[in-house]
């Protein structure tokens, strides 16, 4: 564990907490994409299939449980909670998530480190995580008026990705044989998707104005 990975995990954790805070205390999920949240639930479910069979550390297992629990509870809130579900922008959040899942599954079947059930699903989760933010970014672009918590949620998620890249660079130079092309390329693609959002986020922060995206 290095400082970059810890920082990445903590910003990831913070992003989930910000979203849960918004949903739990304000009882609103306005501006949050259910499609993206469902994709994240699938990402964690397919990646952490080995939670019972492979043990890395208490920290790892605990974090896996937190990410699994939080992603599924966010989906539950948005779909079934009687007040929260009414604040969901159903008509704007129309991204077809099958268009993301199918290519990711095909790519995982073609490009993987080992052709085993767990390994292919694990690789699928990497590819899917890389593009899972897209429905959220599209929704953001459509609704345009973004409240602070939604903006902070996406900002923290992007921060998590940035720290993970620093973590990989650090591990590459400090650990022998640490080479994981699939993880790196998927992670890099994911981080690049945030670049545009970050640009406008910093612009609004610099000008001390509410975040607004161009049409």
């Amino acid at each position: 564990m290095n400082i970059f990975r810890l920082a990445g995990d903590m910003t990831h954790l913070a992003s989930v907490l910000v979203l849960l805070l918004k949903i739990h205390t304000i009882k609103s999920c306005a501006g949050v994409s259910l499609k993206t949240q469902e994709l994240y639930a699938i990402v964690f479910a397919t990646r952490y299939l080995d939670i019972l069979t492979s043990f890395v550390s208490i920290y790892n297992t605990l974090m896996k449980l937190i990410f699994l629990g939080s992603s599924f509870s966010i989906v539950w809130y948005m779909k079934y909670h009687k007040t929260v579900r009414r604040t969901y922008d159903r008509d704007q959040d129309t991204f077809r998530h099958w268009f993301l899942m199918l290519p990711c599954l095909l790519l995982a079947l073609l490009i993987h480190e080992k052709f085993t059930f767990f390994e292919v699903l694990w690789t699928f989760s990497l590819y899917l995580e890389a593009v899972a933010i897209l429905p959220q970014l599209v929704l953001l672009q459509r609704t345009r008026n973004i409240d602070n918590l939604t903006g902070q949620y996406i900002f923290l998620l992007g921060g998590y990705r940035g720290f993970y890249i620093l973590n990989w660079i650090y591990r590459y130079f400090t650990e022998p044989h640490y080479v994981h092309w699939i993880t790196w390329i998927a992670g890099l693609v994911q981080t690049l998707l945030y670049a545009d959002f970050f640009y406008y986020y910093f612009l609004s922060w610099k000008n001390n104005k509410k975040l607004q995206l161009p049409a």
Binding site: H12, S54, V56, N60, E113, E119, W122, H177, H180, T183
Partner: peptide, 10 residues
Amino acid sequence: LDALLSHDEL
């Protein structure tokens, strides 16, 4: 072990 090593991240 190698496969496990690549899975030690979240």
